[in-house]
Amino acid sequence: MTASLFDDPPQPAGPPEVLEPGAVVLRGFALAQATDLLAAVQQITAQAPFRHLVTPGGLTMSVAMTNCGALGWVSDRSGYRYDPIDPQTGQSWPTMPLLFRQLAREAAETAGFAGFAPDACLINRYAPGARLSLHQDRDEGNYAHPIVSVSLGVPAMFLWGGAQRADKTRRIALLHGDVVVWGGPARLRFHGVLPLPEAHHPLTGAHRINLTFRKAG
């Protein structure tokens, strides 16, 4: 990742960058709301703290996460699933803020997916070195709805793959305020994030915060 990725000033929202049919990058789409989004994340994590989940195979994920909305994504030795209850607190997940729902709906509509109404928001916190291996978002069961992914804080290198894990991947630099939306024919594409580099952002310090909106129920 080049130094210019961190030195360039934030850019205003531009036209969608098409990755393939059904998948676009919306540059700077969340910039105007970034401070409010991060403040909402702080309120959510005060109720449902970040934690490092364990995979069914017993590995601890490097990315810390939590959820808000009617459903939350969880993982443990018994498998991956959505649950209305936070297993760490025994309480319902925090309510998804209106700002979150509006941003997700507007981003999806801009990408060509009208009427998106997410019921789950996965909130991921990347520290230096944290990564997300190539995977598909399959736990929702119904693939008629898109995925909306919002990047905040330290830039990251997003991997965009194909229908098979072994397919060639593209590297896409995601900056603070960028939003990626994929659905339709691209809904089950493999994707991931390379290890987060050492860097600093004035709003998030050394971290990257990612909001991933899904319709799971």
Rank of each mutant, 00 (worst) to 15 (best):
M1I: 07
A3I: 13
A3K: 11
A3P: 00
S4R: 07
S4A: 07
L5W: 12
L5T: 13
L5G: 05
D7P: 00
P9Q: 06
P10T: 11
Q11E: 14
P12H: 08
P12G: 07
P12Q: 07
P12L: 12
P12T: 11
A13K: 06
G14V: 01
G14T: 15
G14Y: 06
P15I: 11
P15Y: 08
P16A: 13
E17K: 13
E17S: 09
E17G: 00
E20K: 11
P21G: 10
A30F: 00
L31W: 00
Q33M: 10
A34E: 08
T35Q: 15
L38G: 08
Q42L: 09
I44N: 03
I44A: 04
I44R: 06
Q47C: 08
A48I: 11
P49R: 13
P49A: 12
F50Q: 01
R51M: 01
H52S: 10
V54H: 07
T55E: 10
P56N: 11
G57I: 07
M61G: 00
S62Y: 01
V63F: 01
V63E: 01
V63Y: 01
A64Y: 03
M65R: 04
N67L: 10
G72F: 05
R77G: 14
S78F: 14
G79Y: 13
Y82I: 09
Y82H: 09
Y82Q: 07
P84C: 08
I85N: 06
T89N: 12
G90H: 12
Q91M: 15
S92N: 14
W93F: 12
P97C: 13
L99T: 06
R101C: 11
Q102W: 04
L103R: 01
R105K: 10
R105E: 15
R105A: 15
R105C: 09
A108F: 03
A111W: 02
G112E: 08
F113N: 04
F113M: 05
F113E: 03
A114K: 14
A114Y: 01
A114M: 09
A114F: 02
F116A: 05
C121K: 02
C121A: 12
N124E: 02
A127V: 04
G129Y: 07
A130E: 01
R131H: 14
L132R: 07
S133Y: 00
L134K: 14
D137C: 06
R138N: 09
E140Q: 12
G141C: 11
Y143C: 01
Y143A: 11
A144F: 00
V150K: 02
V150T: 08
A156E: 01
M157L: 14
M157D: 08
F158C: 04
F158P: 03
F158W: 03
G162D: 11
A163S: 15
A163N: 15
Q164M: 13
R165L: 14
R170S: 14
R170T: 12
A173I: 02
L174Y: 03
L175Y: 05
L175E: 04
H176P: 03
G177F: 05
W182D: 02
W182E: 02
W182N: 04
L188P: 00
R189N: 11
H191W: 04
G192S: 04
L194W: 01
P195T: 08
P202L: 09
L203E: 14
A206I: 06
A206C: 09
L211C: 06
F213Y: 10
R214K: 08
R214T: 06
R214F: 05
K215Q: 14
K215N: 08
A216E: 03
G217W: 07
